[in-house]
Design a protein around this nucleic acid. Structure first.
Lengths: 205, 205
DNA sequence: CACATATACGGAACACTGTTCCGTTTTTCA
DNA sequence: TGAAAAACGGAACAGTGTTCCGTATATGTG
């Protein structure tokens, strides 16, 4: 609600000193390093590896993220934000149908990269309990606006809930068997074709 | 294929010495202790805790199960076997409809107790790759025979794949939100009611 | 029954985690 | 310029899984 993207600062009030430049720089480096390491080695990667890749000491990691889960959560939120923010950008750059399909691909890639994170989410650790709601809060409006715009333009059917679509893709992207990434893409394309079926300029009948 | 239940011995060939009694006793105690601890604390419980509960040293655990995952796999296989073996037992003790519904409840309880294990399965550790196929190999025939018997008796519709039902229950039992165990039971009952709908002695029309 | 030996046991020791702590360094601002 | 606040770095701690080997014991034989 208060920090959606960009630099992260706790407060901007009448405090005399502002956040030190090196602190902000290290925080950014940490988030970037963590994102890369999590994508490569999963969320169980050692903290020391992330610290080394970011070029900082271990103490610095724990200064910014008191618990290991705080770092995971920060990366997750940042990636959710990036995915959500992609929606208006795509809507401005493409026609409604293309914007919708491109965003779905974007979302699919996001989910597919979150293998290990899904396991962490359901691990029972209460630290992660806030993530699903954040996921919904940011992504549902993003997709809903794309859906509404596309429906208004007559390229897809209206009246379809963004939540259902998000959940469907998330489940489809799960690698239960050794089905490659092709599978997820085909299923998402199929879902979109389903939305296009029966679309028309006038929503009624 | 070779050891379905009961005592576990690697070979029974012409070897002069048979398995030492204390070894077998400790192995049984370990499996029992591991099952209890996994159910209580999840599959991430410390090995030392299991060793202590079984009344053996840590070295003994690793003598029987060289890797931590071997112990998890052994417990899992044992519980899958128990669930699969319950099918013919229930079929012999109850009428087809009752046997089917009781087994589904039994299976639901099995799945519901495996929270942490599901996370381990999808952790990418190749040691667990054999488990899903074992799961299918043992459980699909068990449920299929119950389904066929019930269909032949006319209490449920025929032509329903056991695999789909197993997967559906496994997904429904997953605690994505904070829905209690009641939710899983209601959904399973609903699935069974669905199977009963339109059932009759003659499958055609 | 006594004994020799393969077998199994137990737990100290090792390697590697996440996390805490505090002396040192750097940045900020008067 | 200088002092204080802020942040840094990494040694040290606590708790994992795993290995190793001296010790204890069950087994089969004379």
């Amino acid at each position: 609600m208060d920090d959606t993207a960009g630099e992260i600062r706790p407060e901007d009030d009448g405090k005399p000193r502002r956040v030190r430049a090196d602190a902000q720089r290290n925080l950014d480096a940490l988030l970037r390093a963590a994102m890369a390491v999590f994508a490569t080695s999963g969320v169980d990667a050692p903290v020391r590896e992330i610290a080394e890749k970011a070029g900082v000491g271990i103490g610095t990691v724990y200064r910014h993220f008191p618990q290991r889960s705080d770092l995971i959560i920060a990366v997750f939120r940042q990636e959710v934000d990036a995915c959500a923010d992609a929606a208006p950008a795509l809507a401005a750059a493409h026609d409604p149908g293309k914007a919708l399909s491109r965003w779905m691909r974007r979302y699919l890639d996001f989910i597919a990269a979150k293998r290990g994170l899904a396991a962490a989410l359901h691990s029972g650790d209460p630290a992660y309990e806030i993530l699903p709601s954040y996921f919904q809060k940011r992504l549902v409006p993003a997709l809903q606006s794309l859906l509404d715009t596309a429906a208004a333009a007559g390229v897809v059917r209206g009246g379809f809930a963004a939540t259902d679509l998000l959940r469907a893709v998330a489940v489809l992207a799960a690698p239960s068997q050794e089905m490659g990434p092709e599978h997820g893409r085909r299923m998402v394309d199929l879902l979109l074709d389903g939305l296009r079926y029966g679309a028309g300029p006038s929503p009624g009948a």
